[in-house]
Design a binder for these strands. Structure first.
Length: 467
RNA sequence: GCUCCCUUCGUCUAGUGGCCUAGGACGUCGCCCUCUCACGGCGAAAACAUGGGUUCGAGUCCCAUAGGGAGCGCCA
C-alpha cells in the first residue's frame, strides 16, 4: 500500500508557523516512506477564502521546498461530489434534512450554555424524514449514533476514545448548499485515498465525528496522527488571530529556509540530542513515533541561532545568491563597483544574524558615507593625525591589496609609533566605515578597495583639520 | 460549564524501572582568544508540577489534585 498524506489548509489567511509545521511533518512522512503528498485547498468558506491566501500558501511551501505529488485540489470545485454524497447518506438513513431556523438554534445554544451544558443540536428534525422543499431553506445533518463510543489509535497520542453521546448531529450541507468542513474532509480523504492524516491537535475532537461519517460510507478511516500545537511566548496558541507571523515574513526578514525548516522540525520532534539537520537527514530520520506529545513554545532566539549557523556554514555562493534581493531592496548597487557578493558574504557571514542584516551592514563597502556615527566620533581626535598620515602614505605605496599585505602595513605603522594595534585600528576603522564596528580592519580595507580607502582617509584628515 | 489532550532547566528537548548525585541545545552569566563587533574555546547557574500508591528500587507504571492547552458553529 502506498502511503498518501495530505496538507489541507484553508485559504483564509497567511500560512503561519503552526500550519507549515504540520505540513512539514506530513511531507516528511511521505518522503521518508516513499509515499505521495497531496495538497488540498479547503475553500468552502466563501466568506473568508481569498486568492491571496492561496497564493501565500503555495509560495510558503515553495520557499521551504515542500513539494507535492498531487493537487492542488480545490474543494470549491468539487461541490457536486459533496452534494451527491450527502444525498446518498439521506437515502441510506445516515443523514436528514433539518429546517430549524438559525434563531431557534442560537436560542437553544444560549439556553444550554446558561444551564452549563455542552451545546448540542437537540435532534428536532432528526426523525421527521423531511423532504426537500424549494421554498424553504434547509440544511443536511449527519445522523450520529446516540449510544456507544468511537475509538481509534492515534499515532502520536495513543489510544483515544469518545462517547457518541458527546457528539451531535452536525451540519454537513449548509442552507446555501455549500458543504461543511467535517464532511468535505471525509469525502475527500476517501476519494483521494488518504492513508495517513497528520494534522494539528486542534482536530482531535473532530476525529470521532469524521470516523462516524467514514463508517456511514462503509469505509475504513485513515490512520490519524495529531501533532501538538505550537504556542507563542505567552503560552497561548499561535494562530492567525494571535501573534502568528506569516511564513513568508521570515523569508522577507532574511531567514534562510534551511534554518526555519531545521527549527520547525525540532519543535516537537527529536532525534536524540542532535540539533542540526540537513534536509536529507531529516527525511531519512523522521518518524511519527518521535513526535512529542506536549505542545511547544516557539523560541525566536533559537531560530536566530540556526540562521546564524546556516549563514556561516552554507556555501558562500548560495548565500550570495540569496542576498541579492535584500541588496536590491536596500538599493545598494553591488554590481558596478566594490567587492563581489561572494567576497562580501565571506567577510560578513560571522557577524550577521539575517540576510537583511548582512545587506544593511554592507553599505559602506559600496557607498561613501556622509558622516561619522555619533559614538564613532570620539575616536577622531587630533592625536591620531600623525599615524593616519603615515598609514596613508604606506598604503599608497602598497602594490598587493591583500589581507596579508594590509595587515603588515597596519602593524608596521603601529610599531613605528609605538602604539598597540587597537590604538590605531579603531580610528582608521571609523575613518573608512564611519562606524566602530566592522570585520577585521585588513579585510575591511581589502573589500572597500584601494581607491575608496585612500579617498576616505583623505576625507578624515580633512575632517580632523577642521576640528 | 461540558468533552478531550498535555505536564523534565526561562525555551526546545534526551530519558521507555536500576547506566540519572537527570544529559544536550538555545538563551543568560563568567573566563580565555582579540584591532572593534563577532566567531571560536572553556566554565557556571538553571528542571523531573504536587500528593498518594505499585515496586527491593520510579523522571520512567497507576490514581488523584493542581496547572496549561484545545474543542463544543450553517469556520476550517
Amino acid at each position: 500500500m502506498t502511503i498518501r498524506t495530505r496538507f489541507a489548509p484553508s485559504p483564509t489567511g497567511n500560512l503561519h508557523l503552526g500550519s507549515i509545521r504540520t505540513a512539514l511533518y506530513s511531507w516528511l512522512y511521505t518522503r521518508n516512506r516513499g509515499g505521495e503528498f497531496v495538497l488540498r485547498i479547503e475553500d468552502t468558506d466563501q466568506e473568508r477564502s481569498t486568492k491571496e491566501a492561496t497564493q501565500n500558501i503555495m509560495e510558503s511551501m515553495e520557499w521551504l521546498g515542500l513539494d507535492y505529488d498531487a493537487g492542488p485540489f480545490y474543494q470549491a470545485e468539487r461541490l457536486d461530489k459533496y452534494r451527491q454524497a450527502a444525498e446518498q447518506l439521506i437515502e441510506e438513513g445516515s443523514a436528514y434534512r433539518c429546517y430549524c431556523s438559525k434563531e431557534r438554534l442560537t436560542e437553544l445554544r444560549d439556553k444550554q450554555l446558561a444551564n452549563k451544558e455542552k451545546p448540542k443540536y437537540d435532534g428536532c428534525c432528526r426523525d421527521k424524514n423531511l423532504p426537500a422543499r424549494a421554498d424553504q431553506p434547509f440544511v443536511i445533518r449527519f445522523r450520529n449514533d446516540l449510544e456507544g463510543s468511537v475509538s481509534f489509535e492515534d499515532q502520536v497520542l495513543g489510544p483515544l476514545s469518545f462517547q457518541n453521546s458527546e457528539l451531535d448531529d452536525l451540519v454537513i450541507i449548509r442552507s446555501d448548499l455549500f458543504p461543511t468542513y467535517n464532511f468535505c474532509v471525509v469525502v475527500d480523504d476517501l476519494s483521494m485515498k488518504i492513508t495517513h492524516v497528520i494534522r494539528g491537535a486542534d482536530h482531535i475532537n473532530n476525529t470521532p465525528r469524521q470516523i462516524n461519517i467514514f463508517r456511514a460510507f462503509k469505509a475504513e478511516p485513515p490512520i490519524y496522527a495529531h501533532v501538538p500545537l505550537i504556542l507563542g511566548k505567552d503560552g497561548k496558541l499561535l494562530s492567525k488571530r494571535h501573534g502568528a507571523v506569516s511564513v513568508l515574513q521570515y523569508r522577507d526578514d532574511g531567514y534562510l529556509p534551511e534554518a526555519l525548516l531545521n527549527c520547525l522540525v525540532r519543535l516537537g520532534w527529536s532525534h536524540g540530542n542532535q540539533e542540526i539537520f540537513s534536509r536529507d537527514e531529516i527525511i531519512k530520520l523522521f518518524d511519527i513515533k518521535d513526535i512529542n506529545k506536549a505542545a511547544a513554545s516557539f523560541d525566536p532566539e533559537k531560530l536566530l541561532w540556526l540562521n546564524r549557523h546556516y549563514i556561516k556554514t552554507l556555501d558562500s555562493k548560495v548565500i550570495a545568491d540569496r542576498l541579492k534581493p535584500f541588496m536590491q531592496e536596500l538599493k545598494i548597487d553591488y554590481q558596478t563597483s566594490g567587492p563581489t557578493l561572494e567576497e562580501l558574504v565571506v567577510g560578513l557571514r560571522e557577524r550577521a544574524e539575517t540576510l537583511r542584516e548582512m545587506a544593511i551592514k554592507s553599505r559602506y563597502f559600496y557607498e561613501n558615507f556622509e558622516q561619522y556615527e555619533d559614538d564613532a566620533k570620539k575616536h577622531l581626535t587630533p592625536e591620531i593625525i600623525p599615524f593616519v598620515e603615515a598609514f596613508k602614505q604606506s598604503l599608497e605605496k602598497l602594490d598587493a591589496w591583500t589581507d596579508e599585505a594590509l595587515h603588515q602595513a597596519i602593524e608596521e605603522v603601529a610599531k613605528q609609533f609605538g602604539l598597540k594595534l587597537g590604538k590605531i585600528a579603531q580610528p582608521i576603522r571609523v575613518a573608512v566605515t564611519g562606524s566602530t564596528v566592522s570585520p577585521p580592519l585588513n579585510t575591511t580595507l581589502r573589500l572597500i578597495g584601494k581607491q575608496n580607502t585612500l579617498k576616505r582617509i583623505s576625507a578624515v584628515l580633512l575632517y580632523l583639520a577642521k576640528t
